[in-house]
Computed example of a mutant assay.
Amino acid sequence: MTSPWSDLDRPPLRATALQRALVGPDRMWTSVRVVRETGSTNSDLVAQAAAGEAAAGAVLVAEEQTAGRGRLDRSWSAPARSGIFLSMLLRPGDLGVPRERWSWLPLLTGVAAASALSRTAEVGVRLKWPNDLLVTVDGTERKLGGILAELAGDAVVVGIGLNVSLRAEELPVPTAGSLLLAGAGVIDRETLLRALLRTFADLYQDWCSVAGHSEASGLRPAYAAQCATIGRPVRVELPGGRELLGEAVGVDGDGRLVVRAADGVEQAVAAGDVVHVRPGAEPLRG
């Protein structure tokens, strides 16, 4: 079996140090567990929630995922210790957030991740609706990571996968990127993980304090400011094989993407595969 120290550029995470830095009586996080390998941190945490084995604020981090999942049943894979692969167990209902506002959680997670990474890694990170994080590599927009939220009874499990130190030859598809390839000033995973979880905790607690109201919490304008999709020509591939062409003009109070067609009619999209249409360039798929 390959040693965790076989690639000195990718040292293992120090679980005890992370627990000490993030968990405490006055903090949101109740546990931070690091496993060497698993199929999917989301699947594991959903199962633990169903069995009553995980409390709100539990975080599960994997050094490697062998069956990571994204939206629309897409797979997510990366070499061991080359990224951040984590899931968080949240119970917003216990904090007064009605279920109809839980759809904002993937977008809130995106704002937290983009903010923390832009600040800490010293590289621009933007959002692609609804759940992708983007960086620029060699002048081209690339996918840095993704977010997946799943219901687990009265809880929500939110997973994040981020490419940190992937080299060009390790990219799973040509449209993928990493912090390393984007020229990040910091790629230490513990530093990035601490910043991400602390930023998320601040935003989540602010959001919960106003019952998940996207305007009162400042979440909707914060998302709009960081979203690369807004203001772009898009093609939205809708369920049932339909397509919607137009300009993405904003997100509404429910977190849906608002697209204005050529005839001026606006439509809010709750689910769909968004393609950024860039003249003269290959469209970026989520």
Rank of each mutant, 00 (worst) to 15 (best):
D94Q: 14
L95T: 10
L95P: 05
P98K: 13
P98D: 09
R99N: 11
R99L: 15
E100N: 12
R101N: 15
R101C: 09
W104E: 04
W104V: 08
W104K: 06
W104Q: 01
L105K: 01
L105R: 02
L105W: 01
P106H: 07
L107K: 09
L107V: 12
L108R: 03
T109P: 02
G110P: 01
G110Y: 02
V111D: 00
A113Q: 06
A113K: 04
A113N: 10
S115Y: 08
S115P: 10
A116N: 08
L117I: 15
L117C: 12
L117Y: 00
S118H: 04
T120L: 07
E122R: 10
E122Y: 09
E122W: 05
V123E: 01
V125D: 00
V125Y: 04
R126D: 01
R126P: 08
R126T: 03
K128G: 05
P130W: 01
P130V: 07
N131R: 14
L133P: 04
L133C: 02
L134R: 04
L134F: 03
V135P: 11
T136M: 07
D138V: 05
G139A: 03
G139I: 05
T140V: 10
E141C: 13
R142T: 03
R142K: 12
K143R: 07
G146I: 08
L148Q: 08
A149N: 12
E150G: 15
E150Q: 14
L151F: 10
L151M: 11
L151C: 12
L151P: 14
A152I: 13
G153E: 05
G153T: 11
G153M: 12
D154C: 15
A155M: 05
V156D: 07
V157Y: 04
G159Y: 05
